[in-house]
Simulated assay, not measured.
Amino acid sequence: MDITIHASFLPTTDPEASLAFYRDALGLEVRQDVGQGAMRWITIGAPSQPGTSIVLYPPAADPNITEDEQQTIAEMMAKGTFASVLLATPDLDAAFERAQAADVEVMQEPTDQDWGVRDCAFRDPAGNTVRLQQS
């Protein structure tokens, strides 16, 4: 069996701010942008990986989520504990400098971890943790 990763989903509360973060600060490309206002789905991805995407979506769009669950999700997003993504780049320091120049929220500057990875971390405009590691 050959299974590949096609898309993963990250919630967003401000599509324009998320678009600026992922496109302008991190350099990902926009593949689709559908809907409008707060009900907007933006598909982004790395130019070098045309078959793998991240979909930025409005978490309140799911009709199966109760109001209490929506409140819990909003609280977790605000704390940065709801969703995360791990990205990789061959030049971590250059990517960090580009993101930092875009005035993103830095959680961790580039660091050599004990387990052998060099990485850094940001929070996107929705509060999601974005870890970026040297590939």
Rank of each mutant, 00 (worst) to 15 (best):
residue 2 D to E: 13
residue 3 I to D: 03
residue 4 T to W: 07
residue 5 I to Y: 14
residue 6 H to G: 13
residue 6 H to W: 06
residue 7 A to D: 08
residue 7 A to M: 07
residue 11 P to L: 03
residue 12 T to W: 08
residue 12 T to R: 09
residue 13 T to C: 08
residue 14 D to P: 07
residue 14 D to G: 05
residue 15 P to C: 00
residue 16 E to D: 15
residue 19 L to A: 14
residue 20 A to P: 10
residue 24 D to F: 01
residue 25 A to M: 04
residue 27 G to N: 01
residue 27 G to T: 06
residue 30 V to N: 06
residue 32 Q to T: 02
residue 34 V to E: 12
residue 34 V to G: 07
residue 35 G to K: 00
residue 36 Q to A: 14
residue 37 G to N: 01
residue 38 A to N: 11
residue 40 R to S: 04
residue 40 R to Q: 01
residue 41 W to F: 08
residue 43 T to I: 06
residue 43 T to M: 14
residue 44 I to P: 00
residue 45 G to A: 02
residue 46 A to D: 08
residue 48 S to W: 04
residue 53 S to M: 07
residue 53 S to V: 08
residue 55 V to L: 15
residue 55 V to F: 06
residue 56 L to A: 01
residue 56 L to Y: 00
residue 58 P to D: 01
residue 59 P to H: 09
residue 59 P to C: 01
residue 60 A to K: 09
residue 60 A to R: 11
residue 61 A to H: 02
residue 61 A to L: 04
residue 61 A to M: 07
residue 62 D to M: 05
residue 62 D to T: 00
residue 63 P to L: 06
residue 64 N to K: 07
residue 64 N to T: 13
residue 66 T to S: 13
residue 70 Q to G: 11
residue 70 Q to H: 14
residue 70 Q to F: 06
residue 71 Q to N: 11
residue 72 T to D: 14
residue 76 M to C: 12
residue 78 A to M: 00
residue 80 G to R: 00
residue 80 G to N: 09
residue 80 G to E: 02
residue 81 T to E: 14
residue 82 F to R: 11
residue 83 A to C: 11
residue 84 S to E: 14
residue 85 V to A: 15
residue 86 L to A: 15
residue 86 L to I: 14
residue 86 L to G: 13
residue 88 A to P: 09
residue 89 T to N: 12
residue 90 P to Q: 11
residue 91 D to S: 03
residue 91 D to H: 07
residue 92 L to C: 10
residue 93 D to F: 02
residue 95 A to G: 09
residue 96 F to I: 05
residue 97 E to A: 15
residue 98 R to F: 02
residue 99 A to P: 04
residue 100 Q to F: 02
residue 103 D to Q: 13
residue 103 D to A: 09
residue 105 E to H: 14
residue 107 M to T: 03
residue 108 Q to L: 10
residue 111 T to D: 11
residue 113 Q to F: 09
residue 113 Q to N: 15
residue 113 Q to K: 12
residue 117 V to D: 12
residue 118 R to E: 12
residue 118 R to S: 05
residue 120 C to N: 13
residue 121 A to H: 07
residue 121 A to K: 06
residue 123 R to A: 11
residue 124 D to E: 06
residue 125 P to H: 06
residue 126 A to L: 06
residue 127 G to Q: 01
residue 127 G to I: 03
residue 127 G to N: 05
residue 128 N to G: 01
residue 129 T to S: 12
residue 130 V to A: 08
residue 130 V to S: 04
residue 131 R to A: 15
residue 133 Q to W: 10
residue 133 Q to T: 10
residue 134 Q to Y: 10
